[in-house]
């Protein structure tokens, strides 16, 4: 079921949470809605669920417009951030609850609850109460409950934010597996770029209620549309240094560096830490103030004219704090952004 938003806007009393958003969530795919807190991603999700009514715009599930349809008739499954499992019901009762609302015979509901539990691999926990489960198990119960009534669209609100780091890795693979197995159109909200990158088929990056970029995860990383997207994706984050273009040469810290075919202007230079290559003949220069040895890589923290940057280099290269280093960028991978708006120039 393809989900489509057309000019969707949601205004709260004095804030525009979602601002004229038009986007397509492809059928049978896992789409990540990514952005910092307060960017309108959860509002978008609740608009899709029907828990909020849009101020303007339309929502389509396939060819059917659902903008005016109440949540219970949209055929959606929603997994809340804190799961919202009914604490007084057993896991089985929780999963059966939506089915009982549909007046399904008890035996059939029980059967489906078991199948769902099996899908999310918690079938041995059916008699437990939510409190007796770990965060990851509760998450699975919530997914099972959302899937039990065979929704057209599965919505997940920050599904991994309440889990510890180890469980997070495990659970995100689990979500991907469940989504693949069921083939259900899934939309999930997250502020964690790594999470979005690792499991999404498509990512929508939002900022201040506006969609910045809609793309495949790797494309977003390699080809960000603006400074915000470039900064938001990647860990450690992208390095940003002030620079100026003078006569088609990029000037960084008063030194001519790389040729660029752009008119004279102030810009922001962005490059990824992993693209830093120490090279005595390299065009860029920095001063090391800290060296972090992390397993196979060495992370060097440097300053260029008081701006902090990070480079990840091969651990075999010997560097010391206080060294002035020259470096190049691998495959000439760098980005130039307009100084004020952050729009991508190159």
């Amino acid at each position: 079921m393809e989900v489509r938003l057309e000019g969707l806007t949601k205004k709260f009393t004095d804030v525009v949470a979602v601002d004229n958003v038009s986007v397509v969530f492809p059928s049978g795919k896992l789409t990540g809605l990514l952005g910092p807190s307060g960017c309108g991603k959860s509002t978008t999700l609740f608009l899709l669920a029907g828990l909020y009514n849009p101020t303007e715009g339309k929502i389509f599930f396939g060819d059917e417009e659902v903008t005016e349809i109440p949540p219970e008739k949209r055929g959606i499954g929603l997994v809340f951030q804190n799961y919202a499992l009914y604490p007084h019901m057993s896991v089985e009762k929780n999963i059966m609850f939506p089915l009982e609302n549909m007046k399904m015979p008890k035996a059939e509901a029980k059967q489906i609850a078991y199948e769902m539990a099996k899908l999310v691999q918690i079938e041995e926990l059916l008699d437990r109460k939510p409190k007796q489960l770990s965060g990851g198990q509760q998450q699975r119960v919530a997914i099972a409950r959302a899937l039990a009534k065979k929704p057209r669209v599965l919505l997940l609100d920050e599904p991994l934010s309440n889990l510890d780091a180890r469980l997070r890795l495990q659970t995100r693979e689990e979500i991907k597996r469940i989504q693949r197995e069921t083939g259900i159109t899934t939309i999930f909200v997250t502020h964690d770029q790594e999470e979005a990158m690792s499991i999404s088929d498509q990512i929508i990056v939002m900022e201040k209620g506006i969609i910045n970029q809609v793309d495949l995860p790797q494309k977003l990383y390699n080809d960000p549309i603006n400074l915000f997207v470039a900064k938001f994706l990647g860990n450690p984050p992208i390095n940003v240094v002030e620079a100026e273009i003078v006569n088609k040469v990029l000037v960084v810290n008063n030194k001519k560096t790389i040729k660029v075919d752009l008119p004279n202007q102030k810009v922001k230079l962005g490059f990824r830490p992993e693209d830093v290559r120490i090279d005595p003949n390299g065009p860029l220069e920095a001063n090391i103030y800290m060296v972090e040895m992390v397993g196979r890589d060495t992370s060097i923290l440097c300053t260029i004219n008081n701006e902090k940057i990070r480079g990840i280099i091969d651990s075999e290269i010997e560097v010391n704090v206080g060294d002035n280093i020259k470096f190049d960028l691998r495959k000439q991978r760098f980005y130039l952004f307009e100084y004020n708006t952050g729009a991508r120039l190159r």
């Binding site: 669920a49 029907g50 828990l51 949540p71 219970e72 008739k73 959606i76 499954g77 929603l78 809340f80 951030q81 804190n82 919202a84 009914y86 609850f97 939506p98 609302n101 549909m102 409950r145 009534k149």
Partner: peptide, 17 residues
């Protein structure tokens, strides 16, 4: 928590239930 009620609403739970 309001989310219990939102969850119930999405699952089309009748008011008395």
């Amino acid at each position: 928590d309001k989310q219990y009620y939102q969850a119930a609403q999405i699952d089309a739970t009748p008011k008395w239930r």
